[in-house]
Amino acid sequence: MTPNEALKKNPFVLAPMAGITDHAFRTFMKKLDASVVVTELVSATGIEYKSEKTLKLMSFDETQRPIGIQLFGEDPETIAKAAQFAEAEGCDFVDLNFGCPVPKVVKKGAGSAMLKDPVALQKVLAAVKGAIKIPLTIKIRTGWDANSRNAIEVCNIAYNEGIEWVAIHGRTRAQGYNGLADWDFIADVKANTKIPILGNGDILTARQANLRLQQSGVDGVMIGRGCLKNPFIFMDALSLWRGEQPKDVNRDYQALFNSLKSEIVAHCDEHITGIQLRKFAAWFSTGYSGAAQFRKSLFQSKSNEEIMDLANAFFAGIGTVEQEDTSSEEFLMGGHG
C-alpha cells in the first residue's frame, strides 16, 4: 500500500519526532489507529559511514506498514545512496526532511536550510527520485522566515519531480516552535498546488484534527505532540472521521503504559528504557491532578522498577477524570520538524 492509498483509509499520520517515534513507539501507536508512520530523523551521512546508531534508527517491523524512513542531508548523491539503502531495507517509502530547525542540522545546509535554496532542493529531489523505485515524500516548513514563506514554490517543484506528498509544519524555521501553526497558510498552499498536502502543527485533540482536515482541505494531518498527552487521539480522530462516536474503550492508562513498556523493553537497553519510560509517563500524565509532583518523583527515581511503581500508582488513580488543557506547557513543545 502506498502512503497516499493509506491516507484514503485513515488520514491521521503520526508525525516523525526525534527521540520519540522510535521502533517501540511506532508499533505502540499503530495499535492505537495511527495511519502512516515515519522513523525519526536519519542522517544520510550516518548511513554512508554505516553508523550503528544511525542504522538502528531505521529498524521497523511488519505491523508498522506503510513505514517511511526519514532522511536528512545536504549532498544529493549522498542522500540518493542513503535512499537506495533504505529501499533495500524494505521500507515502503522514503521521506526527506526539509523542515528540521535544529542548528546542528541547519548549519550544514540540511533540514529547513534547504528552503533557502529551491534550486539545491530540486537537485536533491531529482537525485533521490531517480535513485529509488518506491514513493518519495517530503516534510517542510512554511518557509525560512516570515519574509520568505515559499512553500507553494517548493510544492510545485515537488509536484514536477513526482513526489508523493508534501507535509507542511505550519511555522517558519525562524519561529522554531513558538507562536501558533498557520493553518490558513497551509490551506492556501493546498488550494494553489496540485500535490497532496499534509498539514502539521498544534493538533491536540481528535475533534481539532477533523476540523483542520475539513477546513483546510488537506489530504491528511500529522499529529505529533497531541499523542504524547493523549495516546487515544488517533483512535478517536478516526472514529469521528468515519462519522462514528469515539470507541467505547476502557481508557485504562495503567494498562496502556504497561503495553508501551513492553515495546520499549523489547527494543532498548536498560538505560534507554529508563529514559523513555520517564518521558512517556510524564507526557501521559499531563493535565491530570498531581501530575507536577508525579513528574518530579519520576525524575528523582533511581531504577526502572521504581519508575513503573510510580507510574502504575498514578495511572491507576486517574479513572474517568477529565484531562485539562495543557497545550501551553513548554515541556510538550519541540522534538519535530
Rank of each mutant, 00 (worst) to 15 (best):
K229G: 12
K229N: 12
K229R: 14
K229L: 14
N230Q: 02
N230C: 10
F232Y: 15
I233H: 11
F234K: 11
F234C: 09
F234H: 13
M235H: 10
A237H: 07
A237V: 13
L238R: 15
L238C: 06
L238P: 01
S239Q: 12
W241Q: 06
R242T: 07
G243I: 02
G243F: 08
E244V: 02
E244N: 11
Q245H: 04
Q245R: 09
P246D: 02
P246E: 01
K247W: 03
D248T: 10
V249G: 05
V249L: 14
N250Y: 02
R251G: 00
R251T: 00
D252W: 02
Y253R: 06
Y253C: 05
Q254D: 12
Q254N: 13
Q254V: 02
F257H: 04
S259A: 13
S262Q: 13
S262P: 00
S262R: 06
S262F: 08
S262I: 07
S262Y: 04
E263A: 04
I264H: 05
I264T: 00
V265L: 01
V265T: 04
V265W: 00
A266S: 15
A266T: 07
A266N: 10
H267N: 09
H267Y: 11
H267W: 11
C268L: 06
C268E: 15
C268G: 00
E270S: 14
